[in-house]
Design a protein around this nucleic acid. Structure first.
Lengths: 233, 233
DNA sequence: ACTAATTTGTTCGTATGTATG
DNA sequence: ACATACATACGAACAAATTAG
């Protein structure tokens, strides 16, 4: 049992018994370090462990804070976020954080059948269900094949509609890969969860007319979503 | 972009292009720090980030190693573990920890179309790929419909073969649900990972002749497996 | 709107403990 | 046993983000 571990245990117990309710700011690192009589590094080891567990999250310049049932989401050939959520009787929503055009990285190029460095449009944002964030997404599109898409993405705020405006009336998933990861502090803050909470990560490639049109990465809050698979009968 | 981030990117790229194949030991932290002209703490920030991503892992006293790349595991209608892994060019294996017959709980009964409390056979164990654990499984079967299954499960050590011995020549998945959890201490020990590491959890129900024959829970080590979905074309 | 104080994040330096080979 | 290498810990300073005034 190392020093930082016992400090983490102590803080965990204090949080568990309600001494620091969810949302409250802990004393500054320097103060806490002084309280335990340790170096600030040592204290940070402890708070980092608790942040990994999802008990705490920190914001540079602001402080360290105490962090405060899943929707079924079918993964089929023709996945449309809004429709899926509406079918589940919930209110879908999206917040688009950024739309940009930049050179593709190796993984993006491979997925879209481009050469690395060919330009892609990128849309990033948060997906909401009943006004709560359920997922982060980063979707890339081939920029040369869809030159006007970036503008449409900014105007229309819906990926399906923006693609339709570029003449892509229909597209289908051809590949979906699922893995899991724990949320880092940045993802946790965006998703209003705790760092260390598990995320489901899906990578989907969609095609229209036999050519890749979209490669979507989505990080789902595992506590709020269950992915369901179609099985043909 | 901090110093340690650019170092992490550089190392990630080097690993991606095969300069450090899976299983190899990286140069000592001090050497790597010297190579990049930074303090060892700074280098450790980079390797810690890569370890969080699952690309590296470190063993005190031994070194920092490149993690093995994850196995692709296709989730189709007719999922067979051994076949899937062999098709991926790996060596499949199973360790059966326990076979028992006991009353079903509510979730098991619902999945198998039984009344809560009706007896089920349960098989628990670890799935291996290339002699490394990749998943924990707990599979339950209706005991009344398959009275001899428990004995076969103990003798045969393969679920597919044990079902065949009970006259179930073929079965198909009718439902698969995917979510994610973090490993607790017990799971971590069985899977040779750390508590808090992310797990993919799948719940699958299989039927034969229109009746449920199997409800399987599997906890996959997210770092060691990627679930892939079939898409009919 | 701007400044200053506060707070976390990163980086350097140094030393000692502990597991591995 | 010994050397190597990672883990932990202390000290100091500056950068970057936030917040209070």
């Amino acid at each position: 049992m190392t020093l930082w571990q016992s400090i983490a245990d102590l803080l965990r117990a204090e949080i568990a018994r309600g001494l620091w309710p969810p949302g409250t700011r802990l004393p500054a690192e320097a103060d806490l370090a002084a309280r335990f009589g340790v170096n600030r590094h040592t204290l940070r080891n402890a708070t980092r462990a608790l942040a990994d567990e999802g008990l705490l999250y920190s914001r540079q310049g602001a402080g360290v804070f105490v962090a405060a049932s899943p929707v079924d989401y079918p993964l089929g050939d023709r996945v449309r976020f809004h429709r899926n959520i509406e079918l589940a009787g919930k209110v879908p929503g999206r917040a688009l954080d950024a739309v940009m055009t930049r050179p593709s990285d190796a993984a993006e190029a491979l997925a879209l059948g481009l050469a690395t460095g060919e330009r892609v449009h990128v849309a990033e944002g948060v997906s909401l269900v009943d006004f709560r964030p359920v997922a982060l997404f980063r979707t890339v599109f081939p920029a040369d094949a869809l030159p006007d898409l970036a503008r449409h993405l900014r105007d229309i705020q819906s990926i399906t509609a923006a693609l339709a405006a570029c003449g892509i009336a229909d597209y289908r998933r051809v590949s979906t890969r699922v893995t899991a990861r724990v949320a880092d502090a940045a993802q946790a803050a965006r998703l209003q969860i705790d760092a260390g909470d598990p995320l489901l990560r899906t990578e989907a490639i969609s095609e229209a007319g036999g050519r890749p049109v979209e490669r979507g990465l989505t990080w789902w809050v595992a506590e709020r979503v269950t992915l369901t698979l179609p099985h043909v009968s």
